[in-house]
Simulated scan of single mutants.
Amino acid sequence: MGGHTLLVLVLVSAALVVLSTAEEIGAVNSFKVIGRVYCDTCQCGYETNITTYITGAKVKLQCLDRINYRLKYEAEGETNENGEYVIYVKGDKGDDMCDVSLVSSSLDGCDKVDTGRDRSRVSLTGYNGLVDEIRHANAMGFMINEPLGSCTMVLKQYQDNADV
């Protein structure tokens, strides 16, 4: 009888371990938010084939409570030589509204925020069907003060392609 009781205890203990870890399957404990910051060299509101990417631009990630809009999490990032940034986030943010937004440009003559392309919402929870810890933010941009001379030709190419 003692051996039977021991076997039952071992099986119950194993079942409890499996059940306690089953809840965490698929849950991501940390995230990696990646994105790019560009200079809109033609002032057209989107990236073109002559868009440049900004080194040293600053961005921030903020997560707000969905009910009362209180700030619950904040982190900052800076772009590399390819205009790319990575922000590492600890913990699942659940239902919080998390946005990456532009802070500043390091490029003289291209430091006016492109309204409408100045932020990107990211989902930072493991309970949304996404299995990867990497979250991609949309590219965000600043406007150049004076469009490049080659923009007319570039925009004409886009117009010609739209007619096809």
Rank of each mutant, 00 (worst) to 15 (best):
D108N: 14
K112P: 01
G116I: 13
I67W: 08
D92I: 01
D118T: 12
S105N: 08
L61A: 05
Q62F: 06
Y88W: 13
K58N: 15
Q62A: 09
D111F: 01
D96C: 02
D96V: 03
K112Q: 09
K72V: 12
K93N: 04
Y69L: 15
G83P: 06
K72P: 00
D114Y: 05
A75N: 05
D99C: 06
N80Y: 11
R70H: 12
V100A: 06
L64A: 12
S105P: 08
K90W: 14
L71T: 14
S120F: 00
D114H: 03
L102W: 04
D95E: 15
Y73P: 04
A57L: 02
D92E: 09
D96P: 01
G116M: 11
S104A: 15
L61I: 11
G109C: 13
Y69G: 07
G83L: 06
L124C: 00
R121E: 06
G83S: 11
K93T: 01
E81A: 13
R70L: 12
Y73V: 09
V100F: 05
E78S: 14
G94W: 05
K60C: 11
C63E: 03
V86A: 12
M97S: 03
G91A: 10
S106N: 13
K93I: 02
E76D: 15
I87L: 12
V122R: 01
A57S: 12
N80K: 11
D99T: 06
V86C: 11
A75Y: 04
L102V: 10
D114I: 00
R117G: 05
D114A: 09
Y69H: 14
R117K: 15
L107R: 01
C98N: 01
G91R: 10
C110K: 02
N68H: 14
S105H: 05
L71N: 12
V113S: 00
L102K: 03
S105D: 07
R117T: 06
D108G: 10
R121K: 15
L64W: 07
D92K: 05
G91Y: 10
G109S: 14
V89Q: 03
L124S: 00
G91W: 09
G83M: 05
L102R: 02
K90I: 11
D95P: 06
V100Y: 01
D111S: 08
D114M: 05
Y85F: 15
L64C: 10
E76Y: 15
C63N: 01
Y73A: 04
S101Q: 12
S101E: 15
Y88V: 09
G116V: 13
A75E: 06
D96R: 03
Q62L: 11
S106I: 05
Y73W: 08
D111M: 02
G83R: 02
G91I: 09
R119I: 04
G116Q: 13
T115P: 00
R117A: 09
S123C: 07
Y73S: 04
I87V: 13
L71P: 08
L64M: 15
K58W: 15
V113P: 00
I87K: 08
E78V: 14
E74C: 07
V86P: 08
V100D: 05
S106V: 02
D96A: 05
K93D: 01
I67V: 13
E76V: 15
C110D: 02
E76A: 13
C63M: 08
R117L: 14
G83T: 08
S123H: 04
D65A: 05
K90C: 09
D118S: 14
V59R: 03
